[in-house]
Design a binder for these strands. Structure first.
Ligand SMILES: [Mn+2]
Ligand SMILES: [Mn+2]
Ligand SMILES: [Zn+2]
Ligand SMILES: [Zn+2]
Lengths: 148, 148
DNA sequence: ATCTAGTTGCGACTTAGTTGCAACTAGAAC
DNA sequence: GTTCTAGTTGCAACTAAGTCGCAACTAGAT
């Protein structure tokens, strides 16, 4: 996960507060889990981790909060090729988008930023007159280590 | 859906037969539904349509066949931003990849082929030494008609 | 015509996410 | 600080989407 040094803990929280989103103990727990995540987390991992900070957090609150964060464009939702199960993964949306490569042999997820990706998005905005809110590029195949 | 005139009915079927995949009446029904689809279909629409050709087709056979087709790289699986429900959508994989734009206001799905997309994939193959089997670019936002 | 590995329908099951509701609470207004 | 209310919560029950074990069936090779 790209963890820019500029990302201050609690940043996500204040960003939402400023937007008029009400802060509760449960939300603070969930937000801090997402902010400090070292990898892509699914809803049930988020729940488990959040419960360690606030035991009252419920599954439905996690889902409702993920919905909220998506609406506010604060997180992205990923399939990561649904390599096992159908669950979705979440990550903090940072300044610049990145794409995800999932190795279908070893399961490794690699992230990559690319100017071409930015150019492609600009092309859609311009040529298709489409106003982009989310752009999700996921690639499946074999990573450098696994290809033959 | 891009329906190249070069796509002959039954093409998908023979493609698989040649690959040593056993053909059953159920598979023929499912394949023909996918081949003649005029839009992106989810598993239950595929089931409904396939049952009109062969009433014995079962839900589990649809899912098993979709799995098979994915493994053979014959179809792509899409989220289309999961605008209602969590279901996945399927489409015949044609020669050239295309990306999907989903309008979050009116729900319209727009497809787009782009040389930049091809370039980006080449960049991943080259710079990341990643061997791509599937590439899925889905964009959410507002279409030309809906953006204010 | 025979044979067998692959495929099927069925039904029960799992997993992921949703929802209605009564109780609770953040934060704005006094 | 007290009051107030719209927004939020946990709970439990629910839906939707997909999976799986198994006995019966069958495609296609021999
Ligand atoms: Mn998905
Ligand atoms: Mn398409
Ligand atoms: Zn790998
Ligand atoms: Zn629209």
């Amino acid at each position: 996960m790209p963890f820019p040094q500029t990302e201050i803990p609690g940043r996500l929280q204040s960003q939402l507060s400023e937007r008029g989103v009400r802060m509760t103990a449960q939300r603070r727990a969930i937000l801090s889990v997402i902010e400090t995540a070292k990898k892509h987390l699914d809803a049930s991992s988020i729940l488990r981790k959040a419960q360690k900070m606030d035991a009252t957090v419920d599954r439905s609150t996690v889902y409702r909060t993920l919905e909220l964060l998506k609406r506010h464009g604060a997180i992205d939702e990923l399939d990561l090729m649904h390599m096992e199960g159908e669950r979705h993964f979440y990550e903090r949306k940072t300044g610049r988008d990145h794409l995800h490569m999932a190795c279908l042999r070893c399961g490794k997820i690699t992230e990559f930023e690319s100017e071409l990706f930015e150019d492609l998005k600009k092309q859609l905005e311009r040529d298709c007159r489409f106003h982009i809110l989310v752009a999700r590029l996921e690639v499946g195949g074999y990573c450098a280590a696994c290809r033959k």
